[in-house]
Design a protein around this nucleic acid. Structure first.
Length: 467
RNA sequence: GUCCCCAUCGUCUAGCCUGGCCCAGGACACCUGCCUUUCACGCAGGCGACAGGGGUUCAAAUCCCCUUGGGGACGCCA
C-alpha cells in the first residue's frame, strides 16, 4: 500500500526572548496543520546567535507552549550543538564549487552596500571574492555562490505564486568567521533533516525564502511547501514586535486570560471559517486549513480577546475556574481562600468578569470578613434609609427563625414579607443588598445568602442597621 | 532607495479564485430597548465599510491597469 508523504511541521523559535503572540500564532497554525493532517509537529531551538540566546528563554518558551496546549512529537533539537552537521553541508557546497571563502571585512561589505544604495540599487555584496578561490583561513566566512540571473519562485500556501528576480539577491554568508552557520543555511539543513514538509512562518520571512530555495536546490534537497502568514499589527498599524508592544504569552497568563481564549483569538486573527467565531480546540483541528488563512496583516484587538476570555470563563466548570482564579484571589489579599469556597462562589460571579483579576475583585465582598466589609457611601445613603433599615431588621428576624437556610427558603421569606406588607420588592431588595454586599450591584441575593450562610448573613444585617 | 506583499464597517472578518443571489453578511466595541431588587449575562434593535481613478462586461466588492495608502525585507539577527 502506498502512504501519503507525512506532513511534518515545525516551530523554530530563537530563544532571545519570551514567546510573544506573533510567534505563538504561527506555532498554533503549524501545530494545527500537523494535527489536522495526522502528521508530526516538531520543535527546533534556533540558538545560533550565541550572544543573545539564553536557556531560560527556551524554558519559558516551552512552558508557554504547554500552557497554550500545544504538544510536540519529539525532543526539540538545538542548533547550537549541530555545528558539525552544518559544516558537513557547507563543505559539500564548497567541494562542489557552489560556495566560496571570502575575506571581505564587515566594513568593506558595508561600503559596497552604501555604494549600491547610492546608485539606487538594492544594497548587496558585490562578489569581490567570488572568483578568487581563496582557501579557508582565519577570519574568513563562506559565501553561497548564488545564481546571477533567472528567477526563483514558489507557490505560497497563503499568498499564491511568488517570485523574485535572482539579481535581487547577493552571495549570502552561510558560515560566519567564528565557524557557526548562519540562519538561512541552518534552517535549510534542519528542515531537510527533520523532514519538514510544510513551513508556516511569519511574513517577514518571504524575502528569505528565495535564498533558502536556492540552498535547497544547491544541496539537492526536496523543497518543502511554504506559507507566510501576515504580521500582527499594533493599534498604530505597525508591526507588533518584541520591542513594539507585543506582549508575551506569559504576560497574558499573568493578566488572567485563559489559554483557550488566547488560542481562539489568535487563530481567528488571520484565519477564518465562514462566520464562526468560537472554536474549541478539537473543532479547530477538524476545521483548520491553510485555505482559510488571510494574506493581509491584522490588527490586534484587546477588546475581542476579552470577550472571548469572558466566554471561556463562562464555559468553564466551576471547580476549574476556581482553581484558575485562586492565585488571583490570593494576590487580591485573601491568601487563606479555599478552592472549595471559591467553587461555590464562581457560579455567582463568572458572568460578571472578563478576566481572572476581575473575577477575584468581583468576589471580594464575599471573601472579606463581615466586620471588614466596606460599604459604599452613596449606596448606603440611597438604600439604607430609615425605611430600608426597618425592612432589613424585620427580615433579619424572619431569617433568624429559618431552620434550613437556602436560596429557596430565603427567597420565600422575602416574597412573603413583601406580599404580607403590601410592598414592592424594590423597597426591600436594595436595602438588603447594600447590607450584604456593601454596594448596589452583584449576584442574586438568595444566592449570596446561601453561600454566605445564615450566621454571616445575620451578622452583616446586624451591622448594616447600625451604620 | 530597491524588491516583495497587502487594501471590505473603528477592529477581526464573510463574499473575491468560479463576475449577477451583495444598494455587501457575521463578530468585537459603541448606542437604544427588553429582562432584573441591582450589576452582569442574555435577548431584540441601531450606528457603521467595498481607498481613489480608469478600463473589460449587459452586469464588478469580485477580472485588468494606474495612483494612493499601509506593511515587510534588504545583517557574520532569527
Amino acid at each position: 500500500m502506498t502512504t501519503q508523504p507525512q506532513v511534518v511541521t515545525r516551530f523554530a523559535p530563537s530563544p532571545t526572548g519570551h514567546l510573544h503572540i506573533g510567534g505563538a500564532r504561527t506555532a498554533i497554525f503549524s501545530w494545527l496543520l500537523a494535527r489536522k493532517m495526522g502528521g508530526r509537529f516538531v520543535l527546533r531551538i534556533e540558538d545560533t546567535d550565541r550572544e543573545r540566546s539564553k536557556q531560560e528563554y527556551t524554558d519559558a518558551i516551552l512552558e508557554s507552549m504547554r500552557w497554550l496546549g500545544l504538544d510536540w512529537d519529539a525532543d526539540p533539537i538545538y542548533q547550537s550543538d549541530r555545528d558539525d552537521v552544518y559544516n558537513k553541508y557547507i563543505d559539500q557546497l564548497l567541494d562542489e564549487g557552489k560556495a566560496y571563502w571570502c575575506e571581505c571585512t564587515p566594513e568593506e561589505v558595508e561600503a559596497m552596500r552604501e555604494a549600491a544604495r547610492a546608485a539606487g540599487d538594492k544594497p548587496k555584496y558585490n562578489g569581490h571574492c567570488r572568483a578568487r578561490n581563496l582557501p579557508a583561513g582565519e577570519g574568513r566566512v563562506v559565501r553561497f555562490k548564488a545564481p546571477v540571473s533567472g528567477k526563483t519562485g514558489w507557490v505560497d500556501l497563503v499568498k499564491g505564486p511568488l517570485s523574485f528576480d535572482n539579481t535581487e539577491l547577493d552571495d549570502m554568508i552561510i558560515r560566519r568567521s567564528d565557524g557557526s552557520p548562519t540562519y538561512n543555511l541552518a534552517v535549510v539543513v534542519d528542515d531537510y533533516e527533520q523532514k519538514i514538509s510544510h513551513v508556516l512562518r511569519g511574513d517577514d520571512h518571504v524575502s528569505n525564502t528565495p535564498k533558502q530555495i536556492m540552498l535547497y536546490e544547491a544541496l539537492g534537497f526536496p523543497v518543502p511547501k511554504f506559507g507566510h502568514v501576515p504580521m500582527i499589527l499594533g493599534s498604530d498599524r505597525k508591526k507588533l514586535s518584541k520591542r513594539h508592544g507585543a506582549l508575551s504569552v506569559m504576560e497574558y497568563e499573568k493578566m488572567g486570560y485563559l489559554p483557550q481564549a488566547l488560542v481562539n483569538y489568535l487563530v481567528r486573527l488571520g484565519w477564518s471559517y465562514g462566520d464562526q467565531e468560537i472554536f474549541e480546540l478539537q473543532e479547530l483541528i477538524e476545521k483548520f486549513s491553510t485555505d482559510g488563512l488571510s494574506g493581509s496583516p491584522a490588527g490586534f484587538d484587546p477588546d475581542k480577546l476579552q470577550w472571548l476570555n469572558a466566554h471561556y470563563m463562562k464555559a468553564s466548570a466551576d471547580a476549574d475556574l476556581a482553581a484558575l482564579a485562586l492565585p488571583f484571589v490570593v494576590r487580591a489579599g485573601f491568601d487563606d481562600a479555599s478552592i472549595d469556597f471559591l467553587t461555590k462562589l464562581v457560579p455567582l460571579f463568572k458572568e460578571r468578569a472578563k478576566d481572572l483579576p476581575e473575577l477575584a475583585e468581583a468576589m471580594r465582598f464575599m471573601l472579606v470578613s463581615d466586620a471588614g466589609l466596606a460599604y459604599d457611601e452613596a449606596a448606603v445613603a440611597k438604600a439604607l434609609t430609615e425605611e430600608g433599615r426597618i425592612h432589613v431588621a424585620a427580615l433579619r428576624a424572619l431569617f433568624a427563625g429559618l431552620e434550613s437556610f437556602t436560596k429557596d427558603t430565603t427567597h420565600d421569606v422575602m416574597a412573603r414579607y413583601v406580599e404580607d406588607n403590601g410592598l414592592k420588592f424594590k423597597a426591600v431588595g436594595p436595602p438588603l443588598r447594600v447590607a450584604l454586599v456593601g454596594a448596589m450591584g452583584g449576584p442574586n441575593l438568595p444566592d449570596v445568602m446561601e453561600v454566605l450562610g445564615k450566621e454571616r448573613t445575620l451578622a452583616r444585617m446586624d451591622r448594616a442597621v447600625t451604620l
